[in-house]
Amino acid sequence: MPHIDFKNDLPGIRSAMAFRPETAGPLNQLAQILLRDENGLSRADRELIATLVSYRNDCFYCHNSHGEIACIYLDGDRNLVNQVRQNFETAEISEKLKALLNIAAKVQNSGKDVNEADIERAKKHGASDVEIHDTVLIAAAFCMFNRYVDGLATYAPTEMDSYPVRAKQIAENGYGTHVYSQNQPK
């Protein structure tokens, strides 16, 4: 049961956003900029970073939601998303993305864990400053989103077939207040 009365029965972060629209606006704008921008990192790369951090924060709602969105951008390759969750170092992804996921995994634990060797590795494989910046900020943002979702004990659906449906909504329309103001996709 959620820790507070959201006065709605929406799943996950959507219930908290509907409860407090004043903060939902900027939260959705931030997600839209960080996860939908196609400058530098691809949308799939961005969602994989979000998935890995959420998985390591043990946030069931977030890692399943963003894993499914990544899956759509990866033409349905759910196996690859699972490889990233389990061990990104052996996943079938570029060396650059591995280096960036390594930075994201450090940020998940603490910003102070990121060291010069981690940054050198990313730069050696062609990561730009903006890509490193976005990796750190996406990872940091999910340390916020995950805590928001679990810190208020929002409802995480256990019907796994509900996640691809909501993921399709995001892949088609992006992030925005529509995620809680419109009828939920079925």
Partner: peptide
């Protein structure tokens, strides 16, 4: 509290 978990990681992570 969650927002400052973002800020702190952003500031130290870079």
């Amino acid at each position: 509290a969650a927002l400052f978990c973002l800020y702190n990681r952003y500031v130290d992570g870079l």
